[in-house]
Amino acid sequence: MNIPRPSLAVYLMANEDAPALAEAAVRGGATVIELGIPYSDPLADGTTIQRAAQAALDAGITPERALELLAEINDRVDVPLVPMTYGAIVESYGLEDFCRDAAKAGAEALIVADIPPEESGPLRDAAAAEGVDLIHLVAPTSRPERIESAAAASTGFVYLVAAVGVTGARENLDPRVAELLELTRGAAGDTPILGGFGVSTRAHVEGLIAAGTDGAIVGSAAIDAIERGGAEALEELVRDLAAGLPS
């Protein structure tokens, strides 16, 4: 997967509105779309994404349907697509089957929030066989050797967790981002690094860029915007955040 530098990735929950919302996000300046495949017990997610996942499950969104929606998004926008989910979902689907179907639907990379690098061997192999990149997370609490292994194992981009905690919009990003970024950069080589968790304002995006990342990931704030004002509010938010990227 090749993402532009700088990049703004926008996370959407897989639901029937997702294709139209993806178009709105791309109009606003999104350069990557992450599509959440809902899971009943999303440990890494705060209340906003938990609620969105539960609503999607209640609406009958299965992993199969989520991949169909991904394919629909792929027909409508021309940016890299990245499904994001949890280990129980991809294992129940079957690692090989999941990677094959995701690749067919247009996925260029994959994020599984609760499969850390040391548990990711079989998934990495299955993804690689389909030409799908596997993205790992590095966190402010990660020790240097973990940052190195996660960054080195990531292809596509490295997901830098910019705040300790679960996903969700917040006031301030972690002050250790700069230090974390330096270690990550050393191990990631040419792989881009995007910062996420808590990104909700243009100032956050500017802060991440100033720290030296290649861009930002916005999730909960995007879902908040959709709940507030649908595709229009999403496009407006994304445009505002994208203005924080250097042109």
Binding site: G87, E118, L137, A139, T141, R143, R146, V161
Partner: peptide, 18 residues
């Protein structure tokens, strides 16, 4: 790997691995 046979392990977000 913290497993008995295939069971166990560590399937958690990166933030708590340390």
């Amino acid at each position: 790997m913290g497993r008995w046979g295939e069971f166990g392990g560590r399937f958690v977000p990166e933030t708590v691995m340390a």
